[in-house]
Design a protein around this nucleic acid. Sequence first.
DNA 1: GTGAAAGCGCTAACAG
DNA 2: CTGTTAGCGCTTTCAC
Lengths: 355, 355
Amino acid sequence: MKLQNGRKIANIQDIARAAGTSIATVSRVLSNADYPVSPLLKEKVLAAAKELNYTPNLLGRMLKSNNNTAIGVVVPNLQNPFFNQVLIGIESEARRRDYELVIYSSHRDPAQERQNIMGMLQKRILGLILFSEDLSSETVEYYVASGGCVALLEANFELETVIRADTDFVEAGRIAARHLIDRGHRRIAFLTSPLTKHSRRKLLEGLKTTCRDMGVPFDEQRDVIVAPSETELDSGLYEFEQGKYLAREFLERRDGHTAIAAVNDITAYGVLQELASQKIAVPEQLSLISFDNLPFSAMLSPALTTVELPSTAMGSTACHLLIDCMEDPDGAVVSRDLVFSYPCRLRVRQSVASI
Amino acid sequence: MKLQNGRKIANIQDIARAAGTSIATVSRVLSNADYPVSPLLKEKVLAAAKELNYTPNLLGRMLKSNNNTAIGVVVPNLQNPFFNQVLIGIESEARRRDYELVIYSSHRDPAQERQNIMGMLQKRILGLILFSEDLSSETVEYYVASGGCVALLEANFELETVIRADTDFVEAGRIAARHLIDRGHRRIAFLTSPLTKHSRRKLLEGLKTTCRDMGVPFDEQRDVIVAPSETELDSGLYEFEQGKYLAREFLERRDGHTAIAAVNDITAYGVLQELASQKIAVPEQLSLISFDNLPFSAMLSPALTTVELPSTAMGSTACHLLIDCMEDPDGAVVSRDLVFSYPCRLRVRQSVASI
DNA sequence: GTGAAAGCGCTAACAG
DNA sequence: CTGTTAGCGCTTTCAC
């Protein structure tokens, strides 16, 4: 109905008229269904379409076929670089398969999340990648019941008929501890935000059990320093400030520690800056390792040794499986193994010394 | 048509049947048009809708009304944190106004960009925010001709009836030069990627003219160091590597310089790491300033002094104006001033010394 | 106030 | 092969 050089956008009727045929034929050639159409007419239709600058109205098609080649992505926010990494993976896969990405940020607000998912349903966006470490399953169940496919990233609730990706945080913790211990460290501190999240507790568990397994003392009272509270500002800056705070706290209570494991990269950046401002050289006087491997971590001085949590790969695989499910006519794919987990990888750089 | 607990998703027919009325009435209450409906019927309809878990099908509505409450965003890529900052601004405004964000990444490929925009048109997404420093206007013109509204961010081509946001890079260059000179620097080097982009040339211009205006010698042969080529890998890592390269080059050719201006923050990170590895202390032995103010820049040691290019604000204002235009029935808004530019701001941190 | 009916642009039977 | 026709779910005249 919109104007285009004074004319409305051409529709198949216009094409049909111009090509001297019927809308059915036009539809058949333009949606290239494998339906026999005489070469002559085909040619004419194509020519008319080109002539009239035909732009198919996918709303019409979608309304008819009730499917939407878009997938919705709900992340807690866009500021946290980790989610950004996940998005990069999702985007590349979506583009490869010709799906659009509709992005919502929930700000960890269940009401907002619910609204986002309902919005998707209203537009018949039937594929959802949900990053939601601390929300519940109700809305998701409704979405699935309405015919949607979903991929859950790091969710803390169980649900059937759904793709799941989880990171093995215990293993991540183990890897970090092992590296530190291999390099001769015997007193390790874990600096963390409050242990309210599954992921953080698992990290701690990995650290702790590995220390014990390898004969290194680890005492939660002495070796774990927890930041007081957590305002979910999500600006990234908050975790950074928290890292500085934790470093100060650590230095006061330091008790023979030669290495710090920080709960994530941004916290480690804060630790690093605080240490630098107190003229404590990393890794010469104190070693530091953390978890994430944000791209920026390679750019620091010293470059940060960190356990890479698969983010981009997780995003791209989740998207890949999701699209498979969406395109699967009779849910056969669902019988495949839809829970996956990528290994964490140690990225050795310069912030851990051998002692 | 999809199943939901074995039933299809309810549509207004179902509601009408359940409420004992007609689809017209249902539509009127459910789309809350300000159309008189008796309280009794209204009540019944609402009850039925709730009972049947009614989820309106926006495709139907959109097909009829030919408008889509989504806006498309085309950025070159998702890896560059600068675009990410812009996106954050766009997202917050879009959410506030209840618009969905459909995100495309063009990878600076005109064909891809064209395809993205065509895809939007096909879904009748009639609002576009395009970040495109080096593409041409053809597709955009077509989009506008088809009834779309567009906001151009940092575009290098002219176009009417369009919102534009541009950054005053000359002024950014001036601000940096002024700061350096105010702090006593008299020999400044500009480290940059190839001067193929408008923005970089403008930065140089601001630097150069300000030096001359303030009586500080600036010689392009001696004071500008250009990286050899530019592979648009866009991983962010490339600019970082380039920064290291430029720093090495600088050190070889250093000729009394006391300060470096790097073309952007990521390049500055590379410079900083190279300097650190060569044990050159910043800012004690050499000062460094750059352009962007990515969130990370505050997290380095030393924290980077940088000229903030408005990114988030630009995104949110662009989105704001775009939605105004889209919602404007008769293009009256277009007469307003639709070209805007935010001031760049100096963020003084620790990488520039007074000498 | 209310409802019947005509589309929005497209696809898919169904008939020729 | 081709065209007619009946919807997809919704909004919106236009009569009552």
